[in-house]
Lab assay of single mutants.
Amino acid sequence: TLFEALYDYEARTEDDLSFHKGEKFQILNSSEGDWWEVRSLTTGETGYIPSPYLA
Rank of each mutant, 00 (worst) to 15 (best):
T1A: 12
T1Y: 11
T1D: 13
T1K: 11
T1S: 11
T1F: 13
T1M: 12
T1L: 14
T1H: 12
L2H: 07
L2F: 14
L2P: 06
L2K: 03
L2Y: 14
L2N: 04
L2D: 04
F3A: 05
F3M: 09
F3R: 06
F3H: 05
F3K: 01
F3L: 06
F3E: 01
F3Q: 02
F3D: 12
F3N: 09
E4N: 04
E4L: 10
E4F: 12
E4V: 14
E4P: 01
E4T: 14
A5N: 00
A5C: 07
A5R: 00
A5S: 05
A5M: 05
A5Y: 02
L6G: 06
L6T: 14
L6W: 13
L6D: 07
L6F: 11
L6S: 07
L6K: 09
L6Q: 08
L6V: 06
L6Y: 07
Y7T: 06
Y7R: 06
Y7F: 11
Y7G: 04
Y7I: 08
D8H: 04
D8K: 02
D8N: 06
D8Q: 03
D8G: 02
Y9Q: 02
Y9R: 02
Y9P: 00
Y9N: 02
Y9S: 03
Y9D: 03
Y9K: 04
E10N: 08
E10W: 10
E10H: 07
E10S: 09
E10R: 06
E10T: 12
E10F: 11
E10G: 02
E10L: 10
A11P: 04
A11K: 09
A11N: 03
A11W: 15
R12K: 14
R12E: 08
R12Y: 09
R12N: 10
R12P: 11
R12F: 08
R12C: 10
R12Q: 14
R12S: 10
T13S: 12
T13D: 08
T13A: 11
T13N: 14
T13C: 15
T13P: 03
E14P: 13
E14Q: 11
E14C: 10
D15T: 11
D15K: 15
D15P: 05
D15H: 15
D15S: 14
D16N: 11
D16L: 12
D16H: 15
D16Q: 15
D16E: 15
D16M: 14
D16R: 13
L17M: 13
L17H: 01
L17Q: 02
L17E: 01
L17R: 14
L17C: 05
L17T: 14
L17S: 03
L17Y: 04
S18K: 07
S18F: 06
S18I: 13
S18M: 04
S18V: 06
S18W: 05
S18Y: 05
F19G: 01
F19W: 02
F19V: 09
F19A: 05
F19L: 03
F19M: 09
H20T: 12
H20D: 03
H20Y: 12
H20C: 10
H20G: 06
H20F: 12
H20P: 03
K21V: 08
K21L: 11
K21S: 05
G22R: 00
G22S: 02
G22T: 02
G22A: 01
G22D: 02
E23C: 04
E23N: 14
E23T: 05
E23H: 05
E23I: 01
E23M: 03
K24F: 13
K24L: 15
K24A: 06
K24R: 09
K24S: 04
K24H: 07
F25C: 01
F25Y: 13
F25A: 08
F25H: 00
Q26D: 15
Q26V: 14
Q26P: 00
Q26C: 08
Q26E: 14
I27C: 03
I27A: 02
I27T: 02
I27H: 00
I27Q: 00
I27G: 00
I27N: 01
I27L: 13
L28S: 01
L28V: 07
L28E: 01
L28W: 01
L28N: 00
L28K: 10
L28Q: 02
L28A: 01
L28Y: 10
L28G: 01
L28R: 12
N29K: 03
N29Y: 04
N29E: 05
N29D: 11
N29Q: 07
N29P: 00
S30W: 12
S30F: 07
S30T: 13
S30C: 12
S30P: 06
S31M: 11
S31L: 10
S31Q: 09
S31W: 09
S31I: 09
S31F: 08
E32G: 13
E32M: 13
E32C: 14
E32F: 14
G33P: 13
G33K: 08
G33S: 11
G33A: 12
G33Q: 11
D34A: 08
D34N: 06
D34Q: 08
W35Y: 11
W35S: 05
W35N: 07
W35F: 08
W35H: 05
W36G: 00
W36D: 01
W36L: 05
W36Y: 04
W36T: 02
E37C: 08
E37F: 15
E37G: 00
E37M: 11
E37H: 13
E37Y: 15
E37N: 04
V38H: 00
V38Q: 01
V38F: 11
V38C: 02
V38I: 04
V38P: 00
R39N: 04
R39I: 12
R39S: 05
R39K: 12
R39G: 03
R39A: 06
R39Q: 11
S40H: 07
S40T: 11
S40D: 04
S40A: 05
S40P: 04
S40I: 12
L41D: 09
L41E: 08
L41K: 01
L41M: 11
L41T: 08
T42A: 13
T42V: 08
T42E: 15
T42I: 08
T42W: 10
T42G: 04
T42R: 13
T42D: 10
T43K: 01
T43W: 05
T43P: 01
T43C: 06
T43Y: 01
T43V: 01
G44V: 02
G44P: 00
G44D: 03
G44Y: 04
G44A: 01
G44R: 01
G44I: 12
E45M: 13
E45K: 14
E45P: 00
E45C: 11
E45F: 09
E45Q: 14
T46F: 10
T46G: 01
T46P: 00
T46C: 07
T46D: 06
T46Q: 11
T46A: 05
T46R: 09
T46V: 14
G47V: 03
G47N: 01
G47H: 07
G47A: 03
G47D: 00
G47F: 09
G47L: 06
G47S: 15
G47R: 03
Y48W: 15
Y48E: 04
Y48D: 00
Y48I: 09
I49C: 03
I49K: 12
I49A: 13
I49Y: 01
I49F: 02
I49N: 02
I49M: 06
I49D: 00
I49H: 00
P50A: 05
P50W: 13
P50D: 02
P50M: 13
P50I: 03
P50E: 05
S51M: 05
S51V: 10
S51K: 10
S51F: 10
P52E: 15
P52N: 15
P52D: 15
P52Y: 15
P52C: 15
P52K: 15
P52I: 15
Y53A: 14
Y53D: 08
Y53E: 05
Y53L: 12
Y53M: 11
Y53S: 10
Y53P: 04
L54V: 10
L54G: 06
L54K: 07
L54I: 08
L54E: 04
L54C: 08
A55W: 10
A55C: 13
A55R: 04
A55P: 08
A55L: 10
